[in-house]
């Protein structure tokens, strides 16, 4: 992928896919994706339903491993290391590439224990109280919950729950945070808070976000990747159309189908 914009010079690649295809059994769900994800940038995946954007996202931290019959072909590298080579431990991959899900999914534990969970599992040697506070501050949730750290995570509002999940994800200090439509279950005000949060978080982390909302992509993303789907044997097969700096993708895309999608002609 070649960029003419100046930003390309100052970025370096953290995740790269090389001709990556993803299968469910015999069915090819995503075909031949070539994509670079840049460090400390927000990359958005957009596209119509069934175009495989979530599937690609989930293959970055090997969450697809948990689906029986799911298989990845081609290479997915993280700092140049092939994530799917035999000697890679998926548990360690997920430690460094965290994830936030579509539906807020706090554990039925206290706010404190929700954050401390990952750290305890990874035998965090430092001060747990500090880690919890720091993570909650980064997720701009500290002021909301500092007086009820022992309350159940499920007692928070939907938007707070999602920020709790973000705090939980960053408490283990990952390098990359994957977000799978993190705002689709939230009201506009909570959505705005999370979008602001993403802008702060990209100083420390690399963020990849799947979104159905094109305005959201223009608001938060430095780069946007457009996926499309075509009819294939056994269902829809997704593929990457193009990835460009967000402004360029929305205002001056190279492909006609991107133009049609971002101007609302289909999808």
């Amino acid at each position: 992928m070649v960029y003419d914009s100046a930003t390309a010079v100052e970025t370096d690649t953290i995740i790269r896919t090389e001709n990556t295809s993803i299968y469910y059994g015999d069915f090819k769900a995503v075909s031949g994706v070539n994509l670079d994800i840049y460090r400390n940038k927000v990359t958005a995946f957009i596209g119509p339903s069934g175009c495989g954007k979530s599937t690609v996202l989930r293959c970055f931290n090997r969450t697809n491993d948990l689906i029986p019959g799911c298989r990845v072909e081609g290479r997915v590298t993280f700092h140049g290391e092939d994530l799917y080579s035999k000697d890679i431990d998926p548990v360690q991959v997920r430690r460094r590439i965290g994830m936030v899900f579509q539906k807020p999914n706090p554990f039925p534990k206290s706010v404190y224990d929700n954050i401390a969970y990952g750290a305890r599992i990874n035998r965090y040697p430092g001060n747990m109280d500090e880690l919890v506070e720091r993570s909650l501050r980064r997720a701009s949730l500290w002021d909301d919950v500092k007086d009820k750290l022992q309350a159940s995570g499920l007692s928070l509002s939907g938007g707070q729950q999602q920020r709790l999940c973000i705090a939980r994800a960053i408490a283990v200090e990952p390098e990359v945070v994957l977000m799978d439509e993190p705002c689709s279950a939230l009201d506009p005000i909570s959505t705005l808070k999370i979008e602001e949060l993403m802008n702060d978080l990209k100083q420390l982390y690399t963020i990849i976000i799947v979104t159905h909302n094109m305005q959201q992509a223009t608001r938060v993303a430095d780069y946007t990747a457009f996926y499309n789907a075509q009819e294939a044997k056994g269902g829809k097969m997704g593929y990457l159309v193009e990835v460009l700096p967000t402004d360029e993708l929305f205002n001056n895309p190279k492909e006609q189908s991107t133009k049609d999608y971002v101007t609302g002609r289909f999808g």
């Binding site: 969450t63 548990v91 899900f101 969970y117 994800a169 283990v172």
Partner: peptide, 18 residues
């Protein structure tokens, strides 16, 4: 127990046993 709880736990680097 919702599937999301398992996903969330695995996503912070927990093993299946944990």
């Amino acid at each position: 127990v919702p599937r999301g709880m398992r996903d969330a736990s695995l996503a912070v680097g927990a093993t299946q046993f944990q």
